[in-house]
Simulated assay, not measured.
Amino acid sequence: MHEFGAGTTNINSIHGAARNPYNRRRYAGGSSGGSAAVVAAGICPVSLGVDGGGSVRLPSALCGIVGFKGTFGRISSSGVIPINWSLGMIGIHAAKVEDALIMYAAIHGHLPTDPIVSRPPPVNLPLLKDLEHHQGENHTSRITLAKYTKWFEDCDKEVYKCCYKVLDAVQRRYGCKVIEVTVPEIEEMRLAHYITIGSECFTSFGLDYNKWGRQEAAMDVRATFALYSSFNNQEFLAAQRMRRRQMHFHMEIFKKADIIVTPTTGCTAKPITESSLKHGELNYIDGAKLVRYQIAGNFLGLPAISIPIGYDDDGMPIGLQLIGSPWAEATLLWVASAIEVLKYLVCTLFYYIFYVKI
């Protein structure tokens, strides 16, 4: 994982970088990049990570696998996430949507030691086999997807072009409706999330870091913790006001749509440089691209899933993200499976045309 979980690349200058199975010279993404890489490499079908700022969905997208997080409180994080207690939760890396569903069915729920008690509605586990036999297409056709074009296209061209192709195919195949919406104050939400996660992380182990970690940590972690330590209580409280405001904006969108759709990341996995192996990755332009679309899932506690949908010109994976309303995990898993089935049908057709027919 990325050192202290405080980064998006998983380049750990102390213990080494988690390499991307699609290209060992590129990073796996962070902070739970090792967990994503072992699934992408075929070592195991599923693994767990901690998602506090996209740290499960981000590396899943870069490594070409499924990354899933539920609504905050749906999966117990008791004793596992003492770092960012209002943002982070256990997430799932999986080779397929069905694998993510199986793991989700196994680990959802509460433990008696959970510090935060909520009363979520009963869990709903969709029957994904219906899609394989085309019995679920009528249900999928009733799904409405919301897209904010200005935000959707705020990424590398290869990424949003690939995402548009999938949206077009989903509409043609299943009859899903895509509507245009606006998500106000996205940059303000990103800053509020950063203040929140930084304040919680520094409160959790900032004193220990200052005592024994500062001299050993990589330069990128030092820069991150320098910022974390600078936030004050007024800024933290202002961030929580923005959290409430953004929840209102998103719930208004969910009155009109079932799912908000975005790319998962603004770029694909970049090369690992010699300097980053020694000092940590300090490219904050690409870092901002990597986390551009994941913030709402953590800051607002919304369920979200990343599905692999294609590759850039260098053969690196691209992910599409679905963000749902609270407790709508079943809908996300269903639509993600529909996209996965569609991808399978396209690959089968390609194989038939170019390998069998010819």
Rank of each mutant, 00 (worst) to 15 (best):
F299E: 04
H248N: 10
S60V: 01
I260K: 01
L48T: 04
A105H: 03
L145H: 00
T9D: 12
K270D: 06
F205H: 11
D314Q: 09
S77V: 02
Y284A: 02
I309W: 07
S47T: 04
I309K: 12
S230N: 08
A226H: 08
M189H: 04
R244Q: 14
G287E: 06
T9H: 10
N138M: 13
V66K: 08
V346T: 09
E216Q: 11
L322H: 03
F350N: 13
T140C: 14
P115K: 15
L87N: 02
I107F: 05
T348A: 07
I143V: 15
L127G: 13
T149R: 15
E158V: 10
G213K: 08
G136I: 00
Y352N: 10
V66I: 04
K211L: 02
L58I: 15
P317N: 12
Y27L: 13
R214P: 10
M103N: 00
M219Q: 14
Y355L: 11
H250T: 00
G198R: 07
L237E: 04
I353G: 05
S55N: 07
L58P: 12
A169F: 14
Q135R: 15
V46A: 07
Y27G: 11
I323H: 07
K211Q: 04
D220S: 15
S276A: 04
P120Q: 05
M219P: 11
T331W: 03
I83C: 10
S32N: 02
I107Y: 01
I358H: 13
T348N: 13
